[in-house]
């Protein structure tokens, strides 16, 4: 990619192609666009929320190649040809994932604004360590803020999902 070439020679926009929730997508992006800008403003994927735009709250967390990343801190152009998953892509064929069911049953959401980011971070956590201890959850999830204070309920939902996955 000739993105950082001489100013007069770089195209100010670029057609970005990547896999979003398993399907190919394209968007016209500026070099300064974040992945969150592209998802929300260009592709109308609204589950990642703009809670702070500085990587502090975790409400925009998405899976990039299976890893949880802050979409607001991710330069859009770096996801070229990669796999991005948002909450819209978690449930398959209209069937909820056990983690989503557990969030509902345990009351893991109140206002719901942080919920997408929580689900994605928890998905990444369970993929990495299928049987997390309480302390692991606290550490791994600590970049996701919830002002309604659903931390205990979310922890229970994750522990429950891990137990049932055994």
């Amino acid at each position: 990619m000739a993105l950082f070439a001489e100013e007069h020679s770089i195209p100010m926009t670029h057609i970005l192609s990547f896999q979003l929730n398993g399907a190919p997508v394209q968007a016209l992006v500026k070099p300064s666009d974040s992945l969150l800008d592209v998802l929300r403003e260009k592709l109308d994927v609204t589950s990642p929320k703009r809670g702070c735009d500085s990587g502090d709250c975790g409400a925009c967390t998405v899976l990039l190649e299976g890893k949880a990343v802050r979409a607001c801190l991710t330069c859009a152009l770096t996801v070229e040809n990669k796999q991005v998953v948002t909450v819209e892509g978690l449930s398959q064929d209209g069937k909820l994932q056990p983690l989503q069911e557990a969030f509902m049953a345990h009351g893991g959401s109140q206002c719901g604004y942080c919920t997408s980011g929580m689900l994605i971070s928890a998905t990444a956590l369970l993929a990495k360590s299928p049987h997390p201890q309480r302390q692991d959850i606290a550490q791994e999830m600590s970049g996701n803020l919830c002002r309604c204070g659903c931390y205990e309920e979310i922890t229970q939902a994750i522990l429950d999902t891990a137990r049932k996955g055994e």
């Binding site: 809670g51 702070c52 502090d56 606290a138 600590s142 996701n144 205990e152």
Partner: peptide, 18 residues
């Protein structure tokens, strides 16, 4: 100016026994 400066409680701060 940011949530990084304004340290609201996180998962790590919630008591292990609640």
């Amino acid at each position: 100016e940011s949530l990084a400066d304004y340290s609201m409680p996180t998962f790590m701060d919630y008591p292990p026994e609640l």
